[in-house]
Simulated scan of single mutants.
Amino acid sequence: MPDRRKFLTRAGYTTLSALLTMGFLQKDKQKEDYSINTIAANSTRMNVNSPLREVAAAKGKRYGAAISGEFLQTDKDYANLIARECSIATPNGELKWNATEPQPGKFTFESADAIANFCQKHNIELHGHTLFWHTGNPDWVSYPPTFEMIERHVKGVMGHYRNSKVLKSWDIANEIIADNENETDNATYGLRKGVKPELIRDLFKIAASVDSSKKFYLNDFGIEGATWKSDRFLKMVEYLKNNGAKIDGAGIQSHLWFSTAYPFDEKGFNSVLKRLNDLEVKPIITELDIIIDTPLPDSIKKLDQMVADSYKRYLDLCFAANVDTVITWGLTDRHTWIRHPDWMPAKFRGNPSNQRFLRPLPFDENLQPKSARNAISQAFQQAT
């Protein structure tokens, strides 16, 4: 798993006090401050338990999560929580190539349709993920796929959802930028070996020919700062814009590692967001979760607060830069991918006692809200 080093926010709170020269004015001012603070406190109490979808909607934004069709069927409480909290959702894997076209030209949508039906029932918008990815393909698909493979797949999958009332957007391509310069044969765009920029351009054009009514995104991780990868990602976005591709937005995955041992490149991240806005390619957060890297705190309570502080600071940066959609990669620690043995970070996999500190999502394994959920709510409430 790539090293996604990010920042840890140390929460600071500042108290402001006014110095008034006349005693009776000071008393009146104190009464006024008390009234204002009481209203604010009551408002906070009213909103603290409001569904995140409602808190986000009040600011013209959307909150959602990646969801599992399996758990929607087998875990009723999980399904109810998704319905309560989310206004947008991304299928975990039900729309990937191996799920939708397991054999050449033979399509199946049973699992994805079950998620789409759930979303329609609960007024949740569906974000399609994904048409092109180097992982999650059936064995018969080469990487990169041939043009003919791509054309048949895109027409089959997007055609099935062309008239969907709930599926409104697609990650057309996912993780096409190499992790570093040693894994590419294209220095300009940093594409994974074998992938040509013209193929990605044609992929977007095929998608638009099937259904141009949906929003199209290029999605990737490791671009939350001024890095080799984010530079290539931005160049690829610009290439698509300049070569006739319909690209409406950029998906910033945001699988984040925070630590007291290293800082977050806030300036670099702001530059990425600004460049996307300048290109008129809307940035959205598509796969957000946060873990704390070593050194770890000495209690779960402290860990949860560190995660919450990190959510708040990161989302504050996002909302200041025109981000209107935040999707966490899951809703509850009960089902987080980070705890899966195949994906767990090596330093945690080899140290079982530290695995309890993998608490990346807004709700805990018992589906109870954590301080991270409250931090996300607060960030939405304070967004302008």
Results as ranks from 00 to 15, higher is better:
K282R: 15
N270C: 14
W329N: 08
T336M: 00
S271A: 01
D298N: 10
L303Y: 08
I284E: 09
T332E: 04
D293Q: 10
A321D: 05
T332S: 03
Y314C: 06
W337T: 13
S299K: 15
G268S: 08
K302V: 15
M306H: 15
L296W: 11
F264W: 14
A321S: 00
P283Q: 10
N322E: 14
R339I: 11
W329T: 01
S299E: 13
W343R: 10
W343A: 01
S310C: 02
I285V: 10
F319C: 01
I300N: 11
S259I: 05
V272A: 04
V326E: 06
E287K: 04
D278V: 08
F319E: 04
Y314W: 15
W343G: 00
E266G: 12
S259L: 02
I290P: 07
F269W: 10
P283L: 07
F264K: 02
W329A: 04
T294L: 14
N322G: 07
P263H: 13
L317Y: 08
W343S: 03
D289H: 05
A261F: 13
I284K: 11
F258Y: 08
S310N: 09
I292S: 09
V307W: 01
L331Y: 08
V281H: 11
D293N: 09
P295F: 09
N270R: 15
D298V: 08
I292G: 06
S310H: 09
S310M: 01
W343K: 14
V323N: 02
R313V: 05
R339F: 04
R313Y: 00
R339L: 01
W343V: 02
A320C: 10
K312A: 05
P295N: 09
A320E: 12
D298W: 06
I327H: 05
A320V: 01
D293H: 10
N322R: 03
I285N: 12
K302F: 13
P263I: 13
L303H: 06
A320Y: 12
D309H: 07
G268R: 00
L296D: 14
K267L: 14
V281M: 12
D333W: 04
I327E: 08
I291V: 15
N277A: 03
F269C: 00
D289F: 01
H340I: 11
L276A: 05
L315M: 01
V323F: 03
T294G: 13
D333R: 12
T336S: 03
I285Y: 04
I291Q: 07
A261C: 12
H340T: 14
H335I: 00
T260L: 03
S259P: 15
D342C: 04
N270P: 10
W329C: 03
Y311C: 03
A261L: 06
P297G: 09
L331G: 01
T286K: 12
T286A: 13
F264Y: 13
I290G: 05
I291L: 15
L279E: 02
V326A: 02
I338E: 07
T336Q: 11
Q305V: 08
A308H: 02
E280P: 15
V323D: 05
